[in-house]
Design a protein around this nucleic acid. Structure first.
Lengths: 204, 204, 204, 204
DNA sequence: TATGAATGAGTGTTCATTCAT
DNA sequence: AATGAATGAACACTCATTCAT
């Protein structure tokens, strides 16, 4: 339990709960994330939580807005005008890798939110989710116009494939971390490089 | 509940429980898989279950051995001598796609087992996991020797990339099923084709 | 939320809250009636509510005054000078049936208020309750004087019997609605007719 | 909490829980009946309860079987061969009155179970419920054949009217107990007599 | 007089695991 | 070796009521 009173002055309860949920998520992962842990951590009553959020998925949607915004920021920061040719696409993929390394719980959350049964009523979620998708689609189209990426790849399919496959590789590495590094003496970075190399070659 | 007595003579309790868990898994999926359902199905006592398995994850690890074996079989059956060039690699990727469609619960299980917190003590799991990995590594090496796949790709990294990315794309499609088909009017098959095209181009 | 300010000038807070509770009751029924909904609807603070009312049951008691007043009005409107003989008594019973159809939530409330554990301190409730009772007693006495209703029935007992039994029949029909209409293919109206016929025969 | 061990030897857990629920019901009434109270009373774990019953409504259904059986018994015991004419019908109505006096919580429960949303999966409930209804219908038919009750009354409607109205009168008396006896100095018995007189006159 | 954030004891329900027999 | 009754902490969610400002 943290000292709630200090925070109250500077932050609204809503934000405070989102922040608490954020921390609980990072410490426990999505599967072990519970409302009980959040209210315990914040030292507030359960009723208080439900004054601000309709459901568990509701807070998670808000946290995932932070997660997606942060990821989008990683994407944007990876793009530089002085990078020519396929470099920007490489940089984009590597930035999503960096994000998954820096914020593994966020990464897990984004996957969790994609469950079909998840019907978020939180406006911001759909918005930022579309924004991220849009960013990648635009990137692909742009590279196709410049003649850098093959024009026969549908940008929408291409985006989902890019996203799905890179997330898969990262998830795989995360899961097999111990196995890969200790047993096989492989490096995650080396593996990511191989992936980028393979997928980049496939689209150019 | 099935008739346990007949099985008892020919099969050991251990195997019998794994088989029961297998069927329960296929019928319910990983999230709805419970020990209660397993012992109900088998008509055995709960205590008996815990005599043979330390935990829920323990049986699931054993079931996943069956799942991985079956997947390996799909891989093997996809390879034909009369297929030339890159066709065998394509066939290999598509066979893992077919597997995920034919046995969604197994596919779900394999992903479930990859959680970092999952620490299986079951010997056989590592064995079959290595076997599957070995198969793909051999495949890659083979294709490289024939000059079909680029020689600069490390076969071990390449294997993990191939595996991780294709599973990622499939998982992504499964999760976004409704979204992809209803909202974007995309086809899962078309998306898989795009993936195969992109990754194949990247390795040849 | 409604605009509270306008009402404030003309109506007292007390009345205003009762009116709000009234509307919330009609829209939600007794079981779903919550203080939260009332203060939300009125746009006032919860503390304000508890300044004017000691408990949830307290407001409901006040709302039930409105309900009983309305029911009394139904009773009165059912009586016409040109109706001769037992017709006015029939009309009286049918008017209480009409009331229960027109204002199901009020009807529900009246039954809810009759729980033994409900101890209303609200003055007005007893008053209107007596008024309704008085009306029926007077009606019975009147009919007895005219020789329409048997003189050996005590008008006070008769009133409670009339009231209790007709409410019971209506409550029974409401509860068994599905059962009566779907399973037994009976009609609510037909059942009410049977009741009126039986009870009217019993008193004449 | 009672001493559980003694009971265990003679009674099965199932029966024991039903008995506990029975007592909790009688002490608290339907609205305040909770699983927590039942397990607290029995001194068992919540999980134990749910091993034997699927839901709260499930136990209540079982308890109501006891209630309905008991009520049916009251009905049957009221019928005597040496009673002639309308006396048996009177006795029947008075027996349901006696039942509601002896077991007010059971009476409440029977009303509670009639909620349309209540979908009991418990076989016995429908059975005994139908039995009770059947008993009354048969009684009416019988009296009609003997020429004691008017033949133009449909026995099914008549049953429901009889049941609904008598339950209504009893519920009304229960609710207004204090009011009737203290304020109006009326007697419940006198009121019941009036009801029986009125309804009997209406049907003969 | 009015506020509204905060409370917390419920509420029904689940399920992996234990242990006396 | 086998049983299966019992556990109990966990879970998401509710709502009448309080009290410091």
């Amino acid at each position: 339990m943290i000292d709630t009173k200090k925070q109250l002055r500077s932050t609204s309860r809503h934000t405070q709960i989102v922040n608490g949920a954020d921390i609980v998520l990072k410490e426990n992962g999505v599967q072990q994330f519970t409302i009980d842990k959040v209210v315990d951590y914040l030292g507030i009553a359960k009723g208080t939580f439900y004054k601000y959020f309709e459901s568990k998925d509701d807070v998670l949607a808000e946290v995932s807005i932070k997660a997606l915004s942060l990821m989008l920021n990683y994407f944007k920061l990876s793009q530089r005008e002085d990078q020519v040719g396929i470099e920007n696409t490489k940089a984009f993929i590597l930035s999503s890798y960096a994000f998954s390394l820096d914020y593994p719980a966020y990464f897990e959350l984004i996957i969790y939110m994609e469950r079909p049964e998840f019907k978020s009523e939180v406006d911001g979620y759909k918005k930022i989710s579309d924004k991220v998708t849009g960013f990648v689609i635009d990137h692909l189209k742009n590279q196709q116009e410049k003649g850098i990426i093959r024009k026969d790849i549908d940008p929408v399919y291409g985006t989902f494939v890019l996203w799905g496959s890179s997330m898969g590789v990262m998830q795989f590495m995360e899961a097999k971390k111990v196995f890969i590094e200790d047993v096989k003496h492989l490096s995650q970075n080396e593996m990511m490089k191989t992936y980028v190399d393979m997928i980049i070659n496939g689209v150019t």
